[in-house]
Protein backbone atom coordinates (compact mmCIF):
# COMPACT_ATOMS: atom_id res chain seq x y z
CA UNK A 1 0.00 0.00 0.00
CA UNK A 2 1.34 3.40 -1.00
CA UNK A 3 0.25 5.02 2.25
CA UNK A 4 2.83 3.08 4.26
CA UNK A 5 5.54 4.86 2.28
CA UNK A 6 6.86 7.54 4.70
CA UNK A 7 7.71 9.93 1.87
CA UNK A 8 4.04 10.19 0.83
CA UNK A 9 1.89 12.94 2.35
CA UNK A 10 -1.41 12.34 0.58
CA UNK A 11 -2.70 9.38 -1.32
CA UNK A 12 -6.10 9.43 -3.04
CA UNK A 13 -7.34 6.22 -4.53
CA UNK A 14 -10.40 5.98 -6.79
CA UNK A 15 -12.08 8.89 -5.00
CA UNK A 16 -15.64 9.64 -6.10
CA UNK A 17 -17.87 12.36 -4.73
CA UNK A 18 -21.30 13.76 -5.57
CA UNK A 19 -23.40 16.63 -4.26
CA UNK A 20 -26.97 15.31 -4.10
CA UNK A 21 -27.16 13.50 -7.46
CA UNK A 22 -24.59 15.63 -9.26
CA UNK A 23 -21.28 13.79 -9.61
CA UNK A 24 -18.32 16.10 -8.94
CA UNK A 25 -15.36 13.75 -8.75
CA UNK A 26 -15.40 10.50 -10.71
CA UNK A 27 -12.43 8.46 -9.66
CA UNK A 28 -9.41 10.54 -8.64
CA UNK A 29 -6.05 8.81 -8.19
CA UNK A 30 -3.38 11.11 -6.85
CA UNK A 31 -0.23 10.82 -4.79
CA UNK A 32 1.53 13.83 -3.31
CA UNK A 33 4.96 13.51 -1.74
CA UNK A 34 6.18 15.38 1.32
CA UNK A 35 7.78 18.73 0.57
CA UNK A 36 6.11 19.16 -2.82
CA UNK A 37 4.24 22.23 -4.00
CA UNK A 38 1.39 20.88 -6.07
CA UNK A 39 -1.09 23.05 -7.95
CA UNK A 40 -4.53 21.73 -8.76
CA UNK A 41 -6.13 23.50 -11.70
CA UNK A 42 -9.37 23.16 -13.61
CA UNK A 43 -12.49 25.04 -14.56
CA UNK A 44 -14.90 26.56 -12.07
CA UNK A 45 -17.14 24.00 -10.40
CA UNK A 46 -14.72 21.27 -11.42
CA UNK A 47 -14.30 19.90 -7.91
CA UNK A 48 -10.99 21.52 -6.97
CA UNK A 49 -12.22 22.93 -3.67
CA UNK A 50 -14.13 19.69 -3.04
CA UNK A 51 -10.82 17.88 -3.30
CA UNK A 52 -9.36 20.05 -0.51
CA UNK A 53 -12.44 19.35 1.62
CA UNK A 54 -11.91 15.62 1.15
CA UNK A 55 -8.22 15.81 2.08
CA UNK A 56 -9.02 17.73 5.27
CA UNK A 57 -11.84 15.38 6.23
CA UNK A 58 -14.51 18.08 5.95
CA UNK A 59 -16.22 15.96 3.29
CA UNK A 60 -16.48 12.21 2.98
CA UNK A 61 -16.00 10.51 -0.40
CA UNK A 62 -18.86 8.35 -1.68
CA UNK A 63 -16.23 5.76 -2.53
CA UNK A 64 -12.46 5.43 -2.66
CA UNK A 65 -9.81 6.09 -0.03
CA UNK A 66 -8.14 9.25 1.26
CA UNK A 67 -4.91 8.68 3.17
CA UNK A 68 -3.07 11.57 4.79
CA UNK A 69 0.32 10.86 6.34
CA UNK A 70 -0.76 7.26 6.90
CA UNK A 71 -4.18 8.10 8.39
CA UNK A 72 -7.40 6.90 6.80
CA UNK A 73 -9.07 10.34 6.83
CA UNK A 74 -12.78 9.52 6.11
CA UNK A 75 -12.91 6.98 8.93
CA UNK A 76 -11.29 9.03 11.68
CA UNK A 77 -13.39 9.93 14.73
CA UNK A 78 -13.80 13.60 15.60
CA UNK A 79 -11.02 13.51 18.18
CA UNK A 80 -8.46 11.89 15.90
CA UNK A 81 -9.52 14.11 13.00
CA UNK A 82 -8.94 17.22 15.12
CA UNK A 83 -5.56 15.83 16.21
CA UNK A 84 -4.64 15.42 12.55
CA UNK A 85 -5.93 18.89 11.64
CA UNK A 86 -3.59 20.50 14.15
CA UNK A 87 -0.90 19.58 11.61
CA UNK A 88 -2.82 21.00 8.64
CA UNK A 89 -3.11 24.67 7.80
CA UNK A 90 -5.68 26.00 5.41
CA UNK A 91 -5.87 29.38 3.70
CA UNK A 92 -9.44 30.14 2.68
CA UNK A 93 -10.44 31.92 -0.48
CA UNK A 94 -11.17 35.26 1.20
CA UNK A 95 -9.06 34.67 4.29
CA UNK A 96 -11.98 33.90 6.63
CA UNK A 97 -10.50 36.08 9.37
CA UNK A 98 -12.61 36.36 12.51
CA UNK A 99 -14.23 39.74 12.07
CA UNK A 100 -14.73 40.33 15.80
CA UNK A 101 -11.02 39.91 16.62
CA UNK A 102 -8.04 42.15 15.87
CA UNK A 103 -5.27 41.03 13.53
CA UNK A 104 -3.19 40.11 16.57
CA UNK A 105 -5.96 38.07 18.18
CA UNK A 106 -6.69 36.31 14.88
CA UNK A 107 -3.12 35.05 14.65
CA UNK A 108 -3.06 34.32 18.39
CA UNK A 109 -6.25 32.24 18.09
CA UNK A 110 -4.57 28.88 17.25
CA UNK A 111 -2.02 29.31 20.07
CA UNK A 112 -4.65 30.23 22.63
CA UNK A 113 -6.95 27.38 21.60
CA UNK A 114 -4.41 24.64 21.04
CA UNK A 115 -1.52 25.33 23.40
CA UNK A 116 -0.91 26.23 27.05
CA UNK A 117 1.78 28.75 26.20
CA UNK A 118 2.05 31.79 28.48
CA UNK A 119 0.70 35.04 27.04
CA UNK A 120 4.18 36.60 26.76
CA UNK A 121 5.33 33.72 24.58
CA UNK A 122 2.21 33.93 22.45
CA UNK A 123 2.84 37.62 21.94
CA UNK A 124 6.35 36.92 20.66
CA UNK A 125 5.18 34.11 18.37
CA UNK A 126 2.35 36.17 16.89
CA UNK A 127 4.64 39.11 16.17
CA UNK A 128 7.13 36.75 14.52
CA UNK A 129 4.44 35.28 12.26
CA UNK A 130 3.15 38.75 11.38
CA UNK A 131 6.71 39.92 10.67
CA UNK A 132 7.11 37.01 8.26
CA UNK A 133 4.16 38.26 6.20
CA UNK A 134 5.24 41.89 6.61
CA UNK A 135 2.30 43.02 8.71
CA UNK A 136 3.70 43.33 12.22
CA UNK A 137 2.83 47.02 12.13
CA UNK A 138 -0.84 46.20 11.48
CA UNK A 139 -1.42 43.98 14.48
CA UNK A 140 -3.85 46.37 16.19
CA UNK A 141 -6.14 46.73 13.17
CA UNK A 142 -9.49 45.01 12.75
CA UNK A 143 -9.98 42.77 9.67
CA UNK A 144 -12.45 45.31 8.24
CA UNK A 145 -9.62 47.85 8.07
CA UNK A 146 -7.40 45.63 5.88
CA UNK A 147 -7.20 45.47 2.11
CA UNK A 148 -7.90 42.14 0.40
CA UNK A 149 -4.21 41.36 0.01
CA UNK A 150 -3.40 42.26 3.61
CA UNK A 151 -6.27 40.13 4.90
CA UNK A 152 -4.98 37.19 2.88
CA UNK A 153 -1.50 37.65 4.40
CA UNK A 154 -2.86 37.81 7.95
CA UNK A 155 -4.86 34.66 7.22
CA UNK A 156 -1.68 33.04 5.97
CA UNK A 157 0.14 33.97 9.17
CA UNK A 158 -2.73 32.44 11.15
CA UNK A 159 -2.78 29.28 9.02
CA UNK A 160 0.93 28.58 9.56
CA UNK A 161 0.87 29.54 13.25
CA UNK A 162 1.30 25.99 14.47
CA UNK A 163 3.91 25.15 11.80
CA UNK A 164 1.73 22.67 9.91
CA UNK A 165 3.20 19.81 7.92
CA UNK A 166 0.63 20.35 5.18
CA UNK A 167 -0.79 23.61 3.85
CA UNK A 168 -3.94 23.75 1.76
CA UNK A 169 -4.58 26.90 -0.25
CA UNK A 170 -8.05 27.52 -1.64
CA UNK A 171 -7.80 30.03 -4.49
CA UNK A 172 -5.13 32.13 -2.74
CA UNK A 173 -4.83 34.61 -5.62
CA UNK A 174 -8.49 35.26 -6.41
CA UNK A 175 -9.53 38.90 -6.31
CA UNK A 176 -6.04 40.28 -5.55
CA UNK A 177 -4.09 42.94 -7.41
CA UNK A 178 -0.93 41.77 -9.26
CA UNK A 179 1.40 43.02 -6.52
CA UNK A 180 -0.48 41.11 -3.83
CA UNK A 181 -0.55 38.01 -6.05
CA UNK A 182 3.22 38.19 -6.31
CA UNK A 183 3.62 38.69 -2.56
CA UNK A 184 1.35 35.77 -1.67
CA UNK A 185 3.05 33.55 -4.26
CA UNK A 186 6.49 34.32 -2.88
CA UNK A 187 5.31 33.78 0.70
CA UNK A 188 3.87 30.39 -0.19
CA UNK A 189 7.15 29.31 -1.70
CA UNK A 190 9.25 30.71 1.14
CA UNK A 191 7.11 29.16 3.87
CA UNK A 192 7.16 25.85 2.05
CA UNK A 193 10.97 25.80 1.95
CA UNK A 194 11.56 27.30 5.39
CA UNK A 195 9.14 25.08 7.28
CA UNK A 196 9.58 21.97 5.12
CA UNK A 197 5.86 21.85 4.42
CA UNK A 198 3.87 20.17 1.72
CA UNK A 199 1.68 22.66 -0.12
CA UNK A 200 -1.40 22.07 -2.21
CA UNK A 201 -2.72 25.05 -4.11
CA UNK A 202 -6.12 25.10 -5.76
CA UNK A 203 -6.09 27.91 -8.28
CA UNK A 204 -6.85 29.07 -11.78
CA UNK A 205 -4.11 31.68 -11.88
CA UNK A 206 -1.88 30.00 -14.45
CA UNK A 207 1.04 32.45 -14.49
CA UNK A 208 1.61 32.45 -10.75
CA UNK A 209 1.13 28.69 -10.64
CA UNK A 210 3.78 28.01 -13.24
CA UNK A 211 6.25 30.12 -11.28
CA UNK A 212 5.43 28.40 -8.00
CA UNK A 213 4.55 24.76 -8.38
CA UNK A 214 6.71 21.67 -8.70
CA UNK A 215 3.83 19.83 -10.32
CA UNK A 216 0.51 20.81 -11.87
CA UNK A 217 -2.54 18.58 -11.77
CA UNK A 218 -5.27 19.49 -14.25
CA UNK A 219 -8.77 18.29 -13.42
CA UNK A 220 -11.43 17.86 -16.05
CA UNK A 221 -14.74 16.04 -15.95
CA UNK A 222 -14.14 14.95 -12.36
CA UNK A 223 -10.91 13.15 -13.23
CA UNK A 224 -7.20 13.89 -13.30
CA UNK A 225 -6.81 15.07 -16.88
CA UNK A 226 -3.04 15.65 -16.85
CA UNK A 227 -0.29 15.56 -14.24
CA UNK A 228 2.74 17.45 -15.48
CA UNK A 229 5.63 19.78 -14.69
CA UNK A 230 5.10 23.53 -15.20
CA UNK A 231 7.44 23.59 -18.20
CA UNK A 232 5.40 20.96 -20.00
CA UNK A 233 2.26 23.06 -19.62
CA UNK A 234 3.79 25.93 -21.57
CA UNK A 235 4.51 23.65 -24.51
CA UNK A 236 1.66 21.18 -24.51
CA UNK A 237 -0.73 20.94 -27.43
CA UNK A 238 -3.49 19.49 -25.24
CA UNK A 239 -6.60 21.44 -26.36
CA UNK A 240 -8.11 21.69 -22.88
CA UNK A 241 -4.93 23.05 -21.32
CA UNK A 242 -4.36 25.38 -24.28
CA UNK A 243 -7.86 26.78 -23.88
CA UNK A 244 -7.14 27.28 -20.22
CA UNK A 245 -3.69 28.79 -20.70
CA UNK A 246 -4.69 31.10 -23.53
CA UNK A 247 -8.04 32.09 -22.07
CA UNK A 248 -10.07 31.04 -25.09
CA UNK A 249 -13.83 31.42 -24.58
CA UNK A 250 -14.81 28.30 -26.51
CA UNK A 251 -13.14 24.93 -26.87
CA UNK A 252 -13.32 21.64 -25.01
CA UNK A 253 -14.98 23.71 -22.27
CA UNK A 254 -18.04 25.07 -24.13
CA UNK A 255 -19.00 28.74 -23.94
CA UNK A 256 -22.71 27.87 -23.89
CA UNK A 257 -24.50 26.27 -21.03
CA UNK A 258 -26.37 23.25 -22.46
CA UNK A 259 -29.63 24.51 -23.98
CA UNK A 260 -32.24 23.46 -26.47
CA UNK A 261 -31.86 24.56 -30.07
CA UNK A 262 -31.57 28.36 -30.27
CA UNK A 263 -33.91 28.84 -33.23
CA UNK A 264 -36.57 26.54 -31.81
CA UNK A 265 -36.57 28.38 -28.49
CA UNK A 266 -36.70 31.85 -30.07
CA UNK A 267 -39.53 31.03 -32.47
CA UNK A 268 -41.54 29.09 -29.93
CA UNK A 269 -42.67 25.53 -30.52
Amino acid sequence: MASSDPSVMIDLNGVRFSYADRPILQGIDLTIKKGEIVAIMGGSGGGKTTLLGLMAGRLKPSSGSVTLDGFDVPHLGKKDLYALRRRIGMLFQFGALFTDLTVFDNVAFPYREQTDLPEAMIQALVLMKLEAVGLRGAHRLMPSELSGGMARRVALARAVALDPALMLYDEPFTGLDPISVGIIGRLIKRLNRALGMTSIIVTHDLNETLRLADRVIVLSGGKVHRDMAPDEIRETEDPFIRQFADGLPDGPVPFHYPAEDYLTELMGS
Binding site: Y82, G89, F109
Partner: peptide, 13 residues
Protein backbone atom coordinates in the same frame (compact mmCIF):
# COMPACT_ATOMS: atom_id res chain seq x y z
CA UNK B 1 -17.60 34.10 5.22
CA UNK B 2 -16.17 30.66 6.08
CA UNK B 3 -15.20 31.74 9.60
CA UNK B 4 -16.85 28.64 11.04
CA UNK B 5 -15.09 26.44 8.48
CA UNK B 6 -11.76 28.10 9.30
CA UNK B 7 -12.33 27.39 12.98
CA UNK B 8 -13.18 23.77 12.21
CA UNK B 9 -9.97 23.50 10.16
CA UNK B 10 -7.98 24.81 13.13
CA UNK B 11 -9.35 21.87 15.12
CA UNK B 12 -11.63 24.12 17.17
CA UNK B 13 -15.25 22.96 17.26
Amino acid sequence: TEQLAAMDMMAVD
